[in-house]
């Protein structure tokens, strides 16, 4: 930012009106109340979900979090399966996406000439603009069959021979397609932030180590990555928050079954997908309250993840966030 000639003038009382200008106060009041709407929405969100799921919170207690039996017809509600489902899909997607995204970000900042870096970066960012349902549709009818016929057999014949978790009957919907779709969806988030923080590493760092005779990769490993680390981690956690809250793409490809996946091909549920799948046809108020409690757990989780991520990113970028569009 051009620091000298941008930004509002310092809030100083007008000499002529002594700061008692009624219209100025009104203006501050109006914009201030618009800002307060954000606070009201967040409070309202928590308040509504807590009160609407209160009966479920009281009836199920802690068993709601740790129980893995979800049986609405018998009024047994344990959301453990969904919590595990969300954790497994998002963490796996996080690991895969972070590796790809950081490598891409490094390529774009350190290696690619700008005529190549701009279009590639732009195309990866466009991935973020494609709606969730379209990913889901593509996931069922294109990615799913591809995973079944090509990737599935390869996985079972290699990793599957060593680790039973990777040995199973490939299916169009299940854990694996969900992980792949989520990975594709969060790469842009992590890439955009990684690119910003890697780009923010001072050039003198690079020049210093190059002058000592380092190769370009050694420069990246020794001078660039450690400097950008906490920002990259922040970006990765933001990607995690997106994966945790992702709903319809996952609902379409994960297979929707109330059981913890025993192989990477098994169908299961995430918290968001069980809500999307069961809420409209909920068997009465208890089932609905239980699903609202799932939403509450999801909300608290994403809230905490977001807070951690924002603090990390803010520390690196000094409170300034990059504009989404280049």
């Amino acid at each position: 930012m051009a620091a000298t000639d941008a930004g509002p003038a310092p809030a100083r009382r007008s000499i002529i009106t002594g700061g008692r200008n009624f219209a100025d106060r009104l203006f501050g009041g109006i914009t201030g109340s618009a800002a307060m709407v954000v606070l009201l929405i967040i409070l309202g969100l928590f308040y509504q979900l807590i009160t609407r799921s209160w009966s479920s919170i009281q009836a199920n207690g802690l068993g709601f979090i740790f129980g893995t039996n979800w049986n609405p017809s018998q009024n047994v509600y344990g959301a453990g399966v969904f919590i595990v489902g969300t954790a497994v899909t998002s963490v796996a997607a996080l690991i895969l996406a972070t590796i790809v995204a950081v490598l891409v970000a490094l390529y774009l900042v350190e290696i690619a000439p700008s005529w190549l870096a701009r279009p590639i970066g732009y195309m990866v960012e466009l991935l973020a603009a494609i709606p969730s349902v379209v990913y889901g549709l593509w996931g069922i009818y294109v990615l799913g069959p591809f995973l079944v016929t090509i990737v599935g057999p390869i996985l079972t014949n290699t990793l599957g021979q060593v680790i039973p978790f990777f040995n199973g009957v490939p299916r169009v919907t299940g854990l694996l397609p969900a992980i792949v779709v989520l990975t594709i969806m969060i790469v842009p988030t992590i890439m955009a932030i990684s690119r910003d923080v890697i780009g923010a590493v001072p050039g003198s760092q690079r020049e210093g180590i190059l002058a000592l005779g380092a190769t370009r990769w050694e420069m990246i490993r020794i001078a660039v990555l450690p400097y950008a680390r906490s920002g990259v981690i922040g970006g990765a956690i933001l990607g995690l928050a997106r994966a945790v809250g992702e709903t319809l793409a996952v609902t379409l490809v994960i297979g929707n079954r109330s059981a913890i996946a025993d192989t990477i091909f098994s169908p299961t549920y995430t918290m968001a997908s069980v809500i999307a799948n069961q809420f409209q046809e909920a068997d009465g108020p208890t089932h609905r309250a239980a699903l609202l409690e799932v939403a509450l757990v999801l909300l608290v989780m994403t809230f905490l993840i977001n807070v951690v991520a924002r603090i990390l990113v803010w520390r690196v970028t000094n409170g300034q966030r990059a504009v989404v569009v280049e």
Partner: peptide, 19 residues
């Protein structure tokens, strides 16, 4: 407030629907 705006941006859209 800026922090809250960022946090709101990160909330899952399905929870906003339920709200």
């Amino acid at each position: 407030l800026r922090f809250l705006v960022d946090v709101l941006a990160g909330m899952p859209s399905i929870t906003i629907g339920l709200f």
